[in-house]
Design a protein around this nucleic acid. Structure first.
Length: 872
DNA sequence: CTGATGATGAGTTGTATG
DNA sequence: CATACAACTCATCATCAG
């Protein structure tokens, strides 16, 4: 569903709501925040214009097909009325992209933001599309285009004039704007000047004291909207031109409308203006538990934020520039379902200007460098050559250099965030200075290489900003909370919670970079008493593992993290590929995990008194049909990234039968390394030589065993016949015979999806394969055998959080091998394997269920041989 | 092999100007 | 209203030294 983007832009398909917003939005003081109607209802005025040229019969035809009148008129206006087929396609496109014009911007009511189902359109037609019937809902004090534009322009010029006056009085322009936002457009220049002065002397140059947040937002949106409207017509024609594919609109979000950024970028509130009333209503789906908090760069390529927002339950992002919290800018968007009332900053608040943050630099700061704050702290810093060039450029002048040189130096200083450290000498920020600016404890990242520190810090949260948003949790979780921290980096979220005094009982942290994990771990050990579990790869956090964690800890209270921005950030010269980029696509894992967590979290009414929804409620809400685009991707996400775990998760997963084949080898006593490698290579590559082999893993057995097996091979076949072919192939027979082998086959089933079936992907590149072979006593009762196997299966299910895949079954050829049953369990790491095998549960189960009725058994494991990966 | 270093624009938005 | 201009951006790549 496209919502606020649609009413903020007039680009082709969303034109129906371009008008009527701007005029109301530019007058904050006149607006009533508590009335959702006017601000959330895009009004339409296209009727008159479009009606004139649209054939009534054609319109009626399409309306008869269930398309809203406004949509039909819009489509006709777009591509004419000659080609009905193309018209139909365009109308379908409108619907598919969620062209629901009714909802809106931040303060929309929950019902207005509820997903629109196509089937319901008929009921909603009048409300959503037909202006004639919406009078009761909409504030239409002024509805004419022209008068709206005039009002708008008049107010803008009035505003501009006042800003100009204030700037002439010596106030910075942004502060002048803030003052107008703060005091209203009606305030006199003197009042505004007083306001700026007051906030400056109060030590807060950026304080805002709005009576209503939304009005600010709308004000800026309104302006942007107008701009868009002005330059939108060209693009519109280009996109919906009458060419052969003129109305094909991609669904991947890459061509979505841009999300307008607020100006000033202050988010829902700032610490300095806590008195004003802030209110928003979240879409039903968005309610926790758990609370979640997602972050990414504000200046992402077009459409990215629209897509992200669509996934994250259509919550409007809170765009905040951290320059209002510290001395460095950091424009970021945050999507979260936290309450936004009663926030409070962490103390002490950091300095907000460079001179306050680094007083020592003051004496070297030239008068012609007006910077008061840094630009965004990035992952790279200026080279020594550059600072040397600057030093040389300035060295030749005894006093102030010519403006040309000033400009060059200033540009470089802004670009690289240079500070003055000596006469004519600039230098990049030190890592510890960046830590300070970003709100981390001193030496937080110390111990890793300098380059790594810059990289990690450049990628991290600004702690004060995040902490301010999270501060509402303090009173909700006096006993601490369980946190799922995705893409943790150096632990910005954890540091923020700690600085807020919120105890973290358990933190599951997912972070790819080892140095970052080290940084977080060492900070944790110094400051925390709770449990920290670090996971390297987000893809290892399967649905089953999440469920297991939830069972263990009783559910997550907060899911927090910012997904990789590499492919979104403007600094990336090479691969700014948007959300589908190699790194940034991990956002979908964030969504997958959050969404799964939302659905499965088992919090028995523990959140009821927090004003959130109970588990039952959220389940009901999630059963709502999702907007088409979301629904589409949900399916895609589940199939691509869903469970790869063989353990049963739900009855709905489609399974496929396979035949597992275990080969145990006794290698020649004095086999050389080369021969051993050749042997394994041969067996491993069999999957490429023969049909029917789905997966192979093999390695050197690491357990001493009475039968002197040295190597084990796991092969997965599509069916029994394929095994016979493999065994009869002279190519492999030689190896198997030469090294003395025993084999076991059993039937089992796994999830019918590429990853679990073929055991592909990172989950299967490394890890430990554990094989359990057993034959039961003839005297054992059928019941006791079944009970034993069921216990094992149950045990596997319970441990599914650290099992990649497990299969077990009854052996097909047990007369030959001597084993009647077998299981193969893949663990992501040796530690996980150890945890399983040396755990009390397993030992108990073994002793009580299997041991008493086992005639003989064999347990062995091998580390998945990287030979295979190298060959791949 | 790691770590340090330096060179490498595009995309987008806001603003000024005529 | 069109255009040019200015500003800014959670980075990647090749290369070299140790």
């Amino acid at each position: 569903m496209v919502d606020w983007a649609s009413d903020s832009d007039n680009d082709g398909k969303f034109e129906w709501d371009t008008d009527g917003e701007a005029e109301t939005s530019s007058a904050p003081a006149l607006r009533n925040a508590d009335a959702p109607g006017p601000s959330t209802r895009p009004r339409q005025d296209a009727n008159g214009k479009a009606n004139g040229s649209a054939p009534p019969a054609l319109v009626a035809d399409f309306m008869g097909m269930g398309f809203p009148k406004e949509m039909v008129l819009k489509a006709i206006k777009e591509i004419g009325d000659t080609d009905t087929e193309q018209l139909l396609e365009l109308l379908l496109t409108y619907q598919a992209i969620g062209g629901d014009p009714s909802p809106s911007v931040g303060n929309c009511s929950a019902s207005a933001c509820a997903p629109q189902v196509l089937e319901e359109d008929e009921d909603d037609d009048d409300v959503n599309w037909d202006e004639d019937d919406t009078g009761g809902n909409c504030d239409r004090a002024h509805h004419s285009d022209d008068s709206g534009d005039e009002d708008f322009l008049q107010e803008m010029s009035e505003k501009d004039e006042k800003i100009k006056s204030l700037v002439n009085m010596g106030f910075p322009e942004d502060e002048a704007k803030m003052a107008i936002t703060r005091c209203g457009l009606d305030a006199s220049v003197d009042t505004l000047a007083d306001s700026i002065f007051a906030s400056q002397t109060a030590g807060n140059g950026y304080s805002v004291n709005l009576s209503d947040y939304e009005d600010t937002e709308f004000s800026s949106f309104g302006r942007r909207k107008k701009t868009r409207f002005m330059d939108g017509s060209k693009k519109k024609r280009k996109r919906y031109g009458s060419g052969p594919q003129g109305n094909q609109v991609p669904f991947d979000g890459s061509h979505e409308e841009p999300m307008p950024l607020p100006n000033p970028m202050v988010g829902f509130s700032l610490p300095s203006d806590r008195l004003r009333s802030v209110h928003r209503n979240l879409p039903d789906q968005a309610f926790g538990p758990p609370f979640f908090y997602y972050e990414n760069v504000a200046l992402a390529p077009k459409g990215v934020w629209t897509t992200i927002s669509r996934f994250l339950y259509d919550i409007q992002p809170e765009f905040v520039d951290s320059k209002y919290f510290c001395a460095a800018a950091r424009k970021r968007g945050y999507i979260h379902n936290l309450p936004i009332e009663n926030r409070s900053p962490v103390l002490p608040t950091p300095p907000k200007t460079i001179s306050e943050a680094f007083p020592n630099t003051k004496r070297w700061w030239p008068s012609w460098d007006p910077r008061r704050q840094f630009n965004c702290l990035q992952t790279c810093v200026a080279s020594a050559k550059l600072t040397e060039r600057i030093r040389c450029a300035l060295g030749s002048f005894s006093d102030a250099p010519p403006t040309q040189v000033q400009k060059y130096v200033l540009d470089e200083c802004r670009k690289w965030n240079l500070v003055w450290v000596g006469k004519n000498k600039v230098a990049p920020l030190e890592p510890d200075e960046m830590e300070f600016l970003l709100g981390y404890p001193r030496n937080h990242t110390r111990g890793v290489s300098r380059t790594e520190r810059y990289r990690a810090l450049g990628n991290s949260f600004q702690v004060d900003t995040v902490a301010y948003h999270l501060s509402v949790l303090r009173d909700m979780f006096p006993n601490g909370m369980n946190v799922l921290s995705l893409f943790s980096g150096i632990g910005g979220a954890e540091v923020a919670l700690h600085r807020l005094g919120i105890r973290m009982k358990t933190v599951i942290s997912v972070e790819k970079s080892e140095v970052n994990r080290t940084v977080l771990k060492s900070w944790w050990d110094q400051t925390q008493t709770g449990t920290l579990i670090e996971i390297a790869d987000v893809r290892h956090l399967t649905a089953e593992r999440i469920e297991s964690f939830i069972r263990r800890f009783g559910g997550f209270d907060l899911v927090i993290g910012g997904s990789p921005c590499n492919n979104l950030a403007g600094s990336n010269r090479h691969h700014r590929d948007g959300l589908e980029g190699e790194h940034s696509a991990l956002f979908y894992d964030y969504f997958r995990i959050l969404d799964h967590n939302c659905k499965t979290i088992a919090g028995p009414n523990k959140y009821q008194n927090l004003g959130s929804r109970t588990e039952k409620d959220s389940a009901v809400h999630l059963s709502h049909p999702l907007p088409s685009a979301t629904r589409k991707v949900v399916i895609c996400t589940c199939s691509m990234l869903g469970s790869s775990n063989g353990a049963p998760s739900s009855g709905l997963v489609k399974k496929r039968k396979i035949v597992e084949h275990i080969i145990l080898l006794r290698a020649k006593p004095n086999i050389s390394d080369v021969e051993e490698k050749d042997m394994l290579d041969y067996l491993y590559t069999s999957q490429y030589q023969m049909r029917g082999i789905l997966a192979v893993s093999l390695g050197r057995i690491e357990d001493p065993n009475t039968e002197n097996f040295t190597h084990a091979v796991f092969m997965r076949f599509q069916q029994k016949d394929d095994i016979a072919k493999f065994q009869s192939s002279p190519y492999y027979y030689k190896i198997l015979d030469e090294h003395g082998s025993v084999s076991v086959d059993f039937e089992s089933e796994v999830e019918d999806d590429i990853i679990p079936l073929f055991r592909r992907g990172e989950d299967f590149n490394y890890g430990v394969e554990f094989m359990l072979l057993i034959s039961f006593l003839e005297s054992a009762s059928r019941d006791s055998v079944e009970d034993a196997l069921a216990s094992l299966q149950r045990m596997i299910s319970q441990c599914s959080s650290f099992i990649v895949q497990a299969t077990l079954g009854c052996c097909l050829n047990h007369m030959d091998s001597g084993y009647s049953h077998a299981a193969v369990i893949r663990f992501p790491s040796f530690d996980d394997f150890k945890l399983f095998r040396e755990g009390m549960e397993y030992k108990d189960m073994w002793a009580s269920k299997l041991q008493p009725i086992a005639e003989k058994s064999l347990e062995l494991h091998f580390t998945v041989d990287p030979v295979g990966n190298q060959l791949m």
